[in-house]
Amino acid sequence: MLELRGVSVVTTGGRAILSDVDLEIERGALTVVLGPNGAGKTTLLRVMSGEIAPTRGTASLEGSNVRSYGPAALARKRCVLSQSRSVGFAFTAREVVALGRYAYGASDVEGSAKIDEALAVVGALDLRDRPYHLLSGGEAVKVDVARVIAQGSSIALLDEPTNHLDPRVQYDILMLFHELTKAGLTVVAALHDLNHAALFADQLLLMKDGSVVANGAPSEVLSQEMLSRVYDLPCSVARTGSGRPLVIPAYFSSEKGVLDAQCSHSPPEHDVLLVSS
């Protein structure tokens, strides 16, 4: 499906952003990429999307180098929800979703149906004639997600799709993509919320300084030691009744709610909570 072999990305100034990344994305799964700011999550997604060519190594999509596809052919195979999005000029929400059909050319017979279907899937049919630039953050992200769905590709690359959203909208967006994976979509999402990752990920990649330091199921990757090492954040990891990890940063269990006295390199001793569901 989507495979990276020995991928390194080095800037023209010689700074390594990705170092020798090897990974395989499972078809029909929701893969979450975690890691601190600057770990290389966005660059990893940009390599996967064919936007940048790796300095060394290859990214391949369905057996062929991602960079060997033309822009339109690539757009029919993968869609991308960028981290920051904006629309120039006063397009309506439906017109923005219609842009998702760009790769299908001017005579796109099923386009109109796909656009309305995508608006319905995200629950944004009522926004269709509203100018995009006047939408709230939560409304705008629904329209952006509808645009990405209307593109009709089998892989969705999402760069921090829950940024700046209220908890309910964050949950709705992740739940939607979780359900779309059940219908066969392959999703790769860079996230920051460890518990969202624990809840929604089928496969979890943990990155630090341009390398993938852990790759597996959330229950294997989200350990106290690993998180302390990668994030320099003391925390406890509890288990829910179903065995899902639940990450609790140390400031919740420290008396004064402050981190300053905590040793930042070796994880402090904490009670491990047992949560039943």
Partner: peptide, 21 residues
């Protein structure tokens, strides 16, 4: 015209939509 519409999302997203920017 269609290409310019795609560019309304910015050059990166226009590429993601399939435009040869």
């Amino acid at each position: 015209a269609r290409n310019l519409n795609a560019l309304a999302l910015g050059e990166r997203d226009a590429f993601h939509l399939g435009l040869d920017v």
